[in-house]
């Protein structure tokens, strides 16, 4: 694939990935985000964070399907950063809209340059968030996944990869598997019993992980890392 076309494609894919956010803003402006906009924003941003992790994890398996698909690797960082982007929007929704912050009050404080009042507005949400982080498993595992994505996003530039060395960088970025699993667990732990919404995402993740395990085993076998079963001559039978 010529470089020129890849650059062109990037110009298409980049805004395309912003489409979920654009739709959210569009529906928000037109008062069409269900009766409970905060819940809707939380669901949409969380879901797309997970979807982008899955798409970025699909790059390698798809490349292996055919030698001519190698160029797809050039989109992986962008997709991974979009996962971080939507996960961060998801976290911001929680911090600003879900944690008991009085947003209109805080905005009024800001406009009036009432910094003490603004700071005071945060007392309740900070207590709520502390309580959540200490007591609620699904919050803990979700925050953990976001921290991993933050680490991966910070170490995503090419110059950091060069400085770290490919091997160490790859080993660090294998944490994306942990983040993906943590994201799926977060989803399962927050839905009420009987709700199977996380299932398709979990199945997709399982397929993507199993593909890697299968390749790893295949490679081991080919290299002779795992000894092939040896036929033992049984005395007395021949």
């Amino acid at each position: 694939m010529p470089n020129r076309i890849i650059v062109l494609l990037k110009w298409i894919v980049f805004p395309l990935c912003l489409l979920p956010l654009a739709l959210l803003v569009w529906y928000g402006v037109h008062q069409n985000l269900s009766a409970d906009p905060v819940a809707e924003i939380t669901h949409v941003t969380g879901r797309w964070a997970l979807v982008f992790i899955l798409i970025s994890l699909a790059v390698t398996p798809v490349r292996r399907l055919h030698p001519r698909l190698g160029w797809l690797i050039r989109f992986r960082r962008m997709l991974g950063l979009y996962a971080f982007f939507y996960a961060s929007l998801h976290l911001c929704t929680y911090v600003f809209l879900f944690s008991d912050l009085d947003v209109p009050g805080a905005l009024a404080n800001l406009q009036a340059h009432d910094w003490a009042g603004f700071r005071a507005q945060w007392a309740v949400p900070i207590a709520t968030m502390k309580d959540d982080i200490l007591r609620r498993k699904f919050i803990q595992v979700g925050l953990f996944a976001w921290c991993l994505l933050l680490l991966l996003a910070l170490t995503s530039p090419a110059w950091i990869m060069r400085r770290m060395g490919g091997r160490r960088w790859s080993r660090l970025h294998a944490l994306v598997y942990v983040a993906a699993i943590a994201g799926a667990v977060h989803f399962w732990w927050l839905v009420k019993p009987g709700v199977l919404r996380p299932l398709p995402y979990t199945l997709a993740l399982a397929v993507l992980l199993l593909a890697r395990i299968a390749w790893w085993l295949q490679k081991k076998l080919r290299r002779g890392g795992i000894p092939a079963p040896v036929k033992v001559q049984q005395p007395g039978l021949s």
Partner: peptide, 20 residues
């Protein structure tokens, strides 16, 4: 509730920002 506090509620009023 095991997954959230019941101390406060988001009053849905039709405006974008919830009233806590």
């Amino acid at each position: 509730h095991p997954r959230w506090s019941q101390k406060t509620e988001r009053r849905l009023t039709g405006s974008f920002f919830p009233q806590i």
